[in-house]
Simulated assay, not measured.
Amino acid sequence: MPVPLVDPADPNAGFLAGLLASRPAEVYAALQGAPAESLELRLRRIRAQLELGEGVQASKAIESLEAAHPDDWRVVWYRGLYALASGDHGTAALAFDAVYDAFPGEPAPKLALGVCAEVLGQLDNAADYYHLVWATDPSYVSAAFGLARVRLAAGDRTGAVAALESVPEASIHYTAARVAGVRARLRQRSPEDPLLDDLMAAAGQVERLTEFGLDTVRRERLSTEVLGCALDWVLSGARGAAGPPGAAAAATLLGSGLEERGLRFGLERSYRVLARLAQRGEERIELVERANRFRPRTWV
Rank of each mutant, 00 (worst) to 15 (best):
P2H: 14
P2Y: 09
A9V: 07
N12F: 11
L16C: 10
A17W: 05
L20S: 10
S22E: 14
R23F: 00
A30T: 09
A36H: 01
E37T: 09
E37K: 13
E37I: 00
S38N: 12
L43M: 04
R44M: 09
Q49F: 03
E51R: 07
E51K: 04
E54Y: 05
G55E: 07
V56P: 02
Q57R: 13
I62F: 07
L65Y: 04
L65K: 02
L65E: 05
H69L: 11
D72V: 10
R74Q: 15
V75F: 03
V76Y: 00
G80A: 04
A83Y: 07
D88K: 13
H89S: 12
A93E: 15
A93M: 06
L94V: 13
D97W: 03
A98P: 03
V99D: 10
D101T: 08
F103H: 15
P104H: 14
A108F: 01
K110E: 14
C116V: 05
A117F: 01
V119T: 12
L120N: 01
N125C: 08
Y129N: 03
L132W: 13
V133D: 04
W134D: 02
A135L: 05
T136W: 07
D137A: 14
P138G: 04
A143P: 07
A143L: 06
A143D: 10
G146Y: 11
L147R: 12
R151W: 08
A153Y: 02
A154C: 00
G155L: 07
G155V: 02
D156M: 08
D156E: 06
R157Q: 13
S166V: 08
V167Q: 10
S171M: 03
H173V: 01
Y174L: 03
V179Y: 01
V179D: 02
R183K: 09
R183A: 09
R185L: 10
Q188D: 15
D197S: 13
D198P: 06
V206E: 00
V206M: 15
V206S: 10
R208Q: 11
L209K: 06
F212H: 15
G213A: 11
L214G: 13
D215A: 06
D215N: 11
R218M: 08
R218Q: 15
L222W: 00
S223H: 06
L227T: 04
L227W: 03
C229S: 15
A230H: 07
A238Y: 11
G240K: 06
G240L: 05
P244A: 11
P245D: 04
A247C: 01
A248E: 02
A248M: 12
A249R: 12
A250M: 06
A250E: 13
A251M: 08
L258S: 00
L258G: 03
L258Q: 01
R261T: 13
L263M: 04
F265W: 09
E268I: 01
S270A: 08
R272T: 12
R272N: 05
R280N: 14
G281D: 15
I285P: 00
L287D: 02
E289G: 02
R293F: 10
R293I: 04
F294V: 08
T298V: 06
T298Q: 08
W299P: 02
